[in-house]
Design a binder for these strands. Sequence first.
DNA 1: TTAATAGTTGACGTAAATAGTAGGGTATGC
DNA 2: GCATACCCTACTATTTACGTCAACTATTAA
Lengths: 151, 151
Amino acid sequence: MRLSTKAQYAVRALVDLSLHSEGRPVALREIARREDIPLNYLEQLFLRLKKGEIVASVRGPGGGYVLARESARIKVGEIVATVEEPLNPVSCLDGGKSACTRVSRCVTHNVWSGLGERIRGFLDSISLAELTLEAREITGTGEFGTESDAD
Amino acid sequence: MRLSTKAQYAVRALVDLSLHSEGRPVALREIARREDIPLNYLEQLFLRLKKGEIVASVRGPGGGYVLARESARIKVGEIVATVEEPLNPVSCLDGGKSACTRVSRCVTHNVWSGLGERIRGFLDSISLAELTLEAREITGTGEFGTESDAD
DNA sequence: TTAATAGTTGACGTAAATAGTAGGGTATGC
DNA sequence: GCATACCCTACTATTTACGTCAACTATTAA
């Protein structure tokens, strides 16, 4: 029942982006450095985030990524669902083929589908804006110099 | 964000056990056949379930497993936590070493720990007794002949 | 118009976790 | 004393996650 690092990276990266973008695009290189995430890996994630219309890209020198809409309208659940495929605890909820042909099928099935809904419900109740605000409070002014973190 | 088959198997197997045990122990061989779970694999799971004091074993011919307590006092969350290690969405919640040394650490950290609590809370709200009852309703009388399931 | 920046894309390799197998051992009841 | 069924460990195979590489395209500024 683990979340992939994809999801963790994506959320962290977007908080970082939201924290450091002041209207201007932020280069992945910076985010990768600050958050200590492999650049190439981050690129893959942002590709998906772009497809999911959570971020938009600006190419060329001085380019980078910006949020595709205001952070209050971006939910954590959406981010997670975008980078790691469907947020279902078991495969037979994905729709389509999966068997489920035994006695105890329905009852356990219901448990898992209920669980999936709870998970989604919770993650969708938190917006990127809230996280960003929290982060700003923690790191102080939040303008610059977010590097230090004396563990 | 997938549940392991271990967890799915374990819950199904226990529903099956609870459904077919009438005071008497149920052999894993039967459960494995009915639920279509590899016997050897099931043995491993029940070893853990025994350690977790969810089931008790009866050795020798005519032996098998019985629930260690009434099914109403066995929660799904407990079953899942027993067969797959800690129910935390991210490793840094497991306690101990894991880093977490960046800016956005705390904020995302809180999200994941909150998520873990929701998951546990939900799964702990469901008892094996409820599932068994449901299963009995679905399959009809629930006495015997639970085999058929016209897909 | 050329060079530098930065995003775009897909293929690839590795490592760790998960799922499943194998096989021998041990207690019990007939 | 044999068959049954739990007990336990070690091993293998498969899948998935994680990360790397390399080549490409678009944009901007000199």
